[in-house]
Design a protein around this nucleic acid. Sequence first.
RNA 1: GCGGCUGUGGUGUAGUGGUAACACAUCAGCUUCCCAAGCUUAGGAUGCGGGUUCGAUUCCCGCCAGCCGCUCCA
Length: 487
Amino acid sequence: MIRSMDKVVALCKRRGFIFQNSEIYGGQNGFWDYGPLGTELKRNVRDAWYHDMVQAHNELLTPAGAPSPFQMVGLESAIIMHPQVWKCSGHYDLFHDMMVDCHECKGRFRQDHLPSTPCPLKPSRTVGQHTSCRLTEPREFNLMFKTILGALGTEDDAAFLRPETAQGIFVNFRNVVDSTRVRLPFGICQVGKSFRNEITPRNFTFRSREFEQMEIEFFCRPDQSRDWYTYWRDRRYNWYLGLGISLDRLILRDHHADELAHYSVGTADIEYAFPFLDAGQYGELEGIAHRGDFDLRSHMEGKLAKNAAGELEVEKLPDGRPKYRGSGKDLSYFDDQTRERFVPHVIEPSAGADRGTLAFLCEAYHEDQQPDDKGELQERVLMKFHPRLAPVKAAVFPLIKKEGMPEQAMAIYGEMRAAGLSCQFDQQAAIGKRYRRQDEIGTPFCITVDGDTAQDKCVTLRDRDTLQQERIPVARIVDEVTMRLKS
RNA sequence: GCGGCUGUGGUGUAGUGGUAACACAUCAGCUUCCCAAGCUUAGGAUGCGGGUUCGAUUCCCGCCAGCCGCUCCA
């Protein structure tokens, strides 16, 4: 089967899943818009995540593989936060380097590392020392989007659009603990937009400058954090499989020790074999990181860094003051069972909503051959979305446009919509063409009123993948479709 | 940010220094009792801006976007 990225991209445009942002003005690199069907699809991805992680979670039971019962709650923090948040989180330094480029060797270097960076063309000297080096002036390299607060604001009022939703959770940790009766272990979940000035936006929506994250910060006792890390890693991996991602295209990859961020004890990526990658290559959908107590401590004490002994301590200026002061607020947790006070450790499953949506689109794309009305095989394009994710759940047709069939079909269509099912009504063109139209947007079920419906009060229910038809009583059709969507 | 290639209706293609063709899709009507049927209609394109030229979609320059390779991906 051919699963080229070009075909997925063309279908996304043709059927209204994803459009280039500001297309009528020539487009805007790194930004994408979701059309009517893409909006439904992405909403279903988000809803499935929030439902499965938060709404359907029963804190009274111990899920399979979990060390204990736990609670899950939601949060929605603002995109713009106090600039100090990003200084203590480490983003400000990491996202705000002064860089110089060399026109000769085409290299890019951090200005503060120049004295110790060997020239790529003459490694015996450092960058800039060789006569042929042609360096640009140091330039600010802003990986965070900067904005100005206040109508009369100046550079002193600079703030940043968040590069991740996680920090909104950490800075609200105290608020959630104080207001909701949650007790360790528990998770705080958030879905929302984040912004990063990616150097090279590429590969359709995969690397965008505005993107949506679905993040969990799971707080637990330090001595249980490794078990929770394993639990969340496996649970999140299985979440994608349960929504139809195939086992041969999804991998769980544990990071090597040298790949880990400075604060992390362990990190795993859930990666998908996107069609735009070479065989054997995978793109990240979600990262599950063991972050220890780095984040809460940073927001208490100030930005942390590893000392010579490899321990985290507050990063100091030459004069001994903290480089970035923390909030000074106590973000520790008191366990009244064990009478212990400690800073919780954090497991962070951080998923990309747009990347997940793209993976579901790529996974759904299929071409097959099905016989037409003369029995000759014809090409068919179909999107095999999981029923939970399909943007349109069912379509309702009159077999032909007369003899009262449209009226009966309209009545059923009205019932479906009233039941909250996303569906379409179509009486345009031949029945086969209407089936194919629905196949191409991934509608799992088609309901057809025919000449017998008036007598036997039944309609046919046609399955997208098998093309099988079954007669179902009109009175039961909403329940029947609802039931099949859940299976 | 660098280098290479590319840019024609919604999609996929054709073509030309004299303002554009085809297929599919879309719309309207007829027809049609179950898988892209047929007939008749309709709308719709040379990415943007300059330059050369009597005339540019075609040649040149700049920009924008996309693809590939670097770089980047905390």
